[in-house]
């Protein structure tokens, strides 16, 4: 599962800074994510984790530093936004499925509109992905008829349909019932096993320990500590990390 720290760099952050008004949410964050790696970002609420991954696909604009995705500078004003968005998939805490379309249509729509795939091919891809997230039979259900966990898996399928190089997961289990968290984590586990590059912001420590190749702990806008899960959880040295892990574990 682990590609180690040797593969091609897919996402690279250098001294990323981001402020909302006078509040500096990110105060110089740097790290690299390599192909096939699964990186988990953990940390207390308000430490800038979600802002961090929203900057990676340009949903939030950074104020300083540099983010590159597949060698593309996200800050570049001449950035081909469409190309960036195609290479980065994103899954949200609140699923954000399109409620006026069925599960199948949700997975098909962007393929047809954005990628200009023929309808028949888009439908074939969509059906395969819905099967992959184990939702066969739910193709014609509207989001309102699905449980939170099912909606989140449709949202994952919708992102995957765009053939992204890297997937961003923004606290995707935070709004779910405990029983359905497992279904969604299984789906992500499967993706990781298939070699998808993933950046997860999560509160699921057990899952992070199991699936991550590398863990970053952020607090007040900076990366306090990082490392592979085995050493991170066993040997975290910074007092802030110890305090956080003490509360969570």
């Amino acid at each position: 599962m682990s590609a180690g720290r040797t593969g091609e760099v897919v996402v690279s952050l250098r001294d990323v800074r981001k402020s909302f008004g006078d509040v500096e949410v990110l105060r110089g964050v740097s790290f690299d994510v390599r192909r096939g790696e699964v990186v988990c970002v953990i940390g207390p609420s308000g430490s800038g984790k979600s802002t961090l991954i929203r900057c990676v696909n340009g949903l939030a604009k950074v104020n300083g530093g540099s983010i590159t995705v597949m060698g593309r500078e996200v800050n570049d004003p001449r950035l081909d936004v469409l190309a960036l968005r195609r290479s980065v998939g994103m899954v949200f805490q609140q699923y954000n499925l399109f409620p006026h379309r069925t599960a199948l249509q949700n997975v098909m729509m962007a393929q047809v509109t954005v990628l200009k795939r023929p309808k028949a091919e888009a439908e074939r891809v969509a059906r395969a992905l819905i099967a992959k997230v184990k939702l066969e039979g739910k193709e014609d259900a509207y989001p309102g008829e699905l449980s939170g966990g099912q909606q989140q898996r449709v949202a994952i399928a919708r992102s995957l349909a765009m053939n992204p190089e890297v997937m961003l997961f923004d606290e995707v289990t935070a709004a779910l019932d405990p029983e359905t968290v497992k279904e969604v984590l299984n789906t992500i586990r499967q993706l990781a096993a298939d070699g998808m590059t993933c950046i997860l912001v999560t509160h699921e420590m057990g899952f992070a320990r199991e699936v991550a190749d590398h863990i970053y702990f952020t607090d007040r806008g900076v990366i306090v500590e990082h490392g592979p899960p085995a050493s991170f959880f066993a040997e975290a040295s910074d007092p802030r990390t110890r305090e956080f892990l003490g509360q969570i574990l």
């Binding site: 949903l59 968005r85 998939g89 399109f98 954005v114 992102s159 765009m162």
Partner: peptide, 15 residues
């Protein structure tokens, strides 16, 4: 309409 709808579409590459 919740802002998440705009963000989801934006992140899928919709103009």
């Amino acid at each position: 309409i919740p802002s998440g709808q705009w963000e989801a579409a934006e992140s899928l590459g919709y103009t």
